[in-house]
Design a binder for these strands. Sequence first.
DNA 1: ATCGGAAACC
DNA 2: GGTTTCCGAT
Length: 484
Amino acid sequence: MDCNCVSDLLLTPPVPALWTPGFAFPDWAYKPESSPGSRQIQLWHFILELLQKEEYQGVIAWQGDYGEFVIKDPDEVARLWGIRKCKPHMNYDKLSRALRYYYNKRILHKTKGKRFTYKFNFSKVVLVNYPLLDMASSPFLLAQNHFNGGAATADCSPVTPEALQSLFPRLPDSGRGTALFDRATGAPEGDKLRLDAFPFLGSAAPCYSKPPSMLGPYPRNPAFDYSWGFNPYLPGALSLNNCPKLPPGSIYPSHFYPNPLQSGLAQLPHPFSSLLPPGDTTGTERAQTGGANGSVGGQAPRLCIPSYPGSLLQGRTELGILGPGMSERERGENTSITGAGGGGIGVGLGLGLGSLGVIGSGGGIQSPSDRRTGVKQDPGSDSELEITDLSDCSSENENEPDFNVSQEKEHRMGGRPHIPEAKTAGLGGTLPQLSSLPPSISPHPLKSLVPLTPPPPSLPTSISPSLILVERHRETETLKHTHS
DNA sequence: ATCGGAAACC
DNA sequence: GGTTTCCGAT
């Protein structure tokens, strides 16, 4: 009974359950260049998947700061991971060990004081993987400061979802990404993302102005060290060869690759994936049908397929299976956000940068599940943010002590938060209570991107402060050009 | 609960 | 390389 993969296969539309149409990394993410031969799904990918799936809200969910998530039901997550990896004896202890290995890789870091809470280091994901970013050209770098209320420490603050909401719909013509690139060279490598087309990316730029300690760990090539193996935007990584088992009808067909950004966009959760032109099913379609696969419920044993990139494809089988959790409204929201074409991936992830949090995000919003799990929103947890980027970014051999410097062990929280509903409701068929979902205006970047999370009521773009700022800078930029 | 070393595994 | 497994330490 080591692995009932086979039987699982018969019981559920396996992969689809985990592979979210709206948000999945392309197969090349599973076999990064720097990690030849690695074609198994990686834990962090898996985590992202779960986070993306509505039915797992009760098990794991975005919570708190940007990029921060809470494993509400460690055992269940471990179980799912075990199933996925055909490791029946997997448990949270082991899984967490694997997660800890990400610390040094800077993929993740622990949110101190919050049990079972980790945080993705999206800054790494985004910035490091956007070597072609034309940061300098963005007038929105300034805008970002506005977005962040000019907080002194907002050097790395992400833009608010609201801002995105107001920005995206207005982004000029969904020109299939062309507007987002300087296509001069034509070659993918030549594609240069125009940051000004993605104001939110501006939030990323300042991140690199973090204290040297942040970059320190990258002696070889600071900003572009892909040592940890994930470089979604590395054009060179876009090879079908990376997906030996790529099934036909893949959602990652060959045409998926040419434009790394557009491709990436397709994987992003709403609204980024929605940025793809309507015609681009690799993106929008999945995005809009994403998530709620009500049938998944139950401990429905998930298949234990050999994890290969292509499995993502199966998300396609979910198309049309719109669970009850996915409201028309959500879909509507999704579609309404179509706007700028291509190039979004960095966007979504970029939002997580640094995670100083938007105004009041740091410890303000606490979802019901937070309370339920005893997760404490530490008002002063902003320090974590520093940790985020200053974290032991060194090689695996050294463990930065300073990572724990500000740590203050909290044992106040009694026993581990047990969430009965998690298993029964979260996975048992009934979708997690909506009430457990963070406020729709959650400052969480990814949360706001997740299809299942209704976007905050969009401000009329015409009066959106964000947009105003953006346009203001746009004008400024124009003026600059005029003068020069 | 969390951490991280060590060794084994694939 | 990316875990998985085990385990002692905090």
